[in-house]
Every structure is written in structure tokens, then in C-alpha cells.
């Protein structure tokens, strides 16, 4: 509770102490190894940022917190994906091959072999244009964006044609997402209908059970009584000029 257990780090010292006090007959086989290759120091908290002089956080403890990492592309990325939010919904390959993948790219063209065309291409192309052709940020953005649209369009055409060709020679692509969705919805609807019918049945049977005894006829007014009561309140129906008097209400609602 709140204490550090440093036994794991002090295995060598412990082994030595046990050996010296003859609790164990000999030293463990790793004794020299751990002595030659000591564990790194634990629980050190280096100062990671300068002490804040002004600003929001003046707490000195913030000095021990890691700093945020910023890259120049971040703003460009934010702009592009702010303008094209649905680009984020596209599936994306994020597996690195060697860790050096980005070094093989030459952004003098927006299409890179071995990299799918996506928002990141636009950002990198914009960076390249800003650096090598010294375009302004909006101009570079426009150029990169338009190249991206064009290649996206070509890609879509290629995919459509490929699909048509495949369908022509007998490919079968299975159900589309809409069909699958409709099917699921239908299934749910049918099961709900069954459930609702069962529910109605249950309720009806319950009600019939409740009223299965002899009906209480005394609570209802007989024909004769009803007529009498109506006659009694006849004079005070709201249609008359006098309006309704409060007296007649009792007979109508016993």
C-alpha cells in the first residue's frame, strides 16, 4: 500500500546476503550475470520540460510530465480532414513494412507505388509543394487537392470497369451492405411481430381470466334508472342559457 516493493530489483543483493548467512549452500547461476549487467535504475523521474513561468499550468509537478509531440503536418492534416471528413471513414492500411516505408516515397507526384491514395498523400504532397516549389499554403493545398480528386476519380472508374468485367464473365460478389441490412431489419421486424402477437395473446388471456367471475351488475345503471337520472339533469344541460348546475352531476356519475 503505497510502498514500492524493490525485492525484484535487489535479487542479487538478496542472493549474496542469503549466501553469506549460509541460508543457501551456493550462489545462483545468474549471480555474476546480474552483477555484470545490473538492472537499470528504477523510479527515477527526469525533468521533461522547463518550469512554467507563465500560462495556464504553473504547477511545478508539470515539469515531470512528458511533452506533447507536434509535427508541421499536423495543421495541414487537420485542414484536409476538416474539409473531407468522410476520408476518415475509408479503410486504411496502417501496417508498416520495414519502418522505413516513408523514406522510399517521392512526393513530386501524388501517386506512390506501394501506398494507397488517401488524405495522407494530399498532406505529404502539399508539404512537398510548399517546400520544393515554394507555393503558398493555400495554393499548394489547392493543387494537391485537385490532383487527389482526379486520381480518386480515375480509381473509381477503374474499379467500376473491373467490376463490370468481372460480372460479365460470371463473378458473383454476394450481397451488398444494403441487402444485408434490409435482411437483418426484416428478420428483426418478423421476430418483433411474433413477440407482439404473443404479448397481445397473453394480455387478452389475462384479462379474460380476471373477468371470468360473475359480472357485477349492481354497479351499472339499469335502463329505468338511467332514464330517471337523465331526466333529472335534463334541465341543466350546458346547451341551455342557464348553463349546467353542479347538482345533477352526482346522479350521472355515481
Amino acid at each position: 500500500m503505497g510502498r514500492y516493493d524493490l525485492r525484484a530489483i535487489r535479487v542479487r543483493q538478496t542472493a549474496k546476503a542469503l549466501y553469506d548467512s549460509k541460508r543457501v549452500p551456493d550462489l545462483p547461476p545468474w549471480y555474476n550475470t546480474v552483477g555484470d549487467i545490473p538492472p537499470s535504475e528504477a523510479l527515477a523521474r527526469p525533468v521533461l520540460r522547463a518550469p512554467p513561468t507563465r500560462g495556464r499550468s504553473r504547477k511545478p509537478s508539470r515539469m515531470f510530465q512528458p511533452l506533447a509531440i507536434h509535427h508541421p503536418e499536423d495543421k495541414l492534416r487537420e485542414d484536409f480532414f476538416g474539409d473531407h471528413p468522410w476520408e476518415l471513414a475509408r479503410p486504411r492500411l496502417i501496417v508498416e513494412d520495414s519502418g522505413n516505408d516513408a523514406k522510399g516515397f517521392n512526393w513530386s507526384s501524388i501517386v506512390q507505388p506501394g501506398k494507397q491514395l488517401d488524405g495522407e498523400s494530399v498532406v505529404q504532397r502539399q508539404m512537398w509543394l510548399m517546400k520544393h516549389q515554394s507555393l503558398s499554403k493555400p495554393a499548394a493545398y489547392d493543387q494537391a487537392r485537385k490532383e487527389f480528386y482526379r486520381h480518386r476519380h480515375l480509381e473509381a472508374i477503374k474499379q467500376r470497369i473491373a467490376k463490370e468485367e468481372a460480372l460479365h464473365v460470371g463473378a458473383y460478389f454476394g450481397k451488398g451492405p444494403l441487402e444485408i441490412g434490409i435482411e437483418l431489419e426484416d428478420r428483426t421486424w418478423e421476430s418483433w411481430k411474433k413477440w407482439a402477437a404473443r404479448q397481445i395473446e397473453d394480455e387478452e388471456s389475462m384479462r379474460s381470466q380476471m373477468f371470468s367471475g360473475p359480472q357485477n351488475r349492481e354497479a351499472e345503471l339499469g335502463n329505468l334508472e338511467l332514464d330517471e337520472a337523465l331526466e333529472e339533469v335534463q334541465s341543466s344541460v350546458p346547451g341551455s342559457s342557464a348553463g349546467q348546475s353542479a347538482l345533477g352531476g352526482a346522479a350521472v356519475h355515481p
Binding site: A42, A44, R45, L48, F64, Q65, P66, L67, A68, I69
Partner: peptide, 16 residues
């Protein structure tokens, strides 16, 4: 916080 010396920085809400 005992891992502070292994951490390079913060990126998109996670420690690197």
C-alpha cells in the same frame, strides 16, 4: 509515473 523516463512524449492522447 514510474515509467516517466521511458516515455518520449504525448501524441494524440497516448504516451509514446
Amino acid at each position: 509515473p514510474a515509467n516517466a523516463r521511458y516515455i518520449h512524449g504525448i501524441r494524440q492522447g497516448i504516451h509514446i
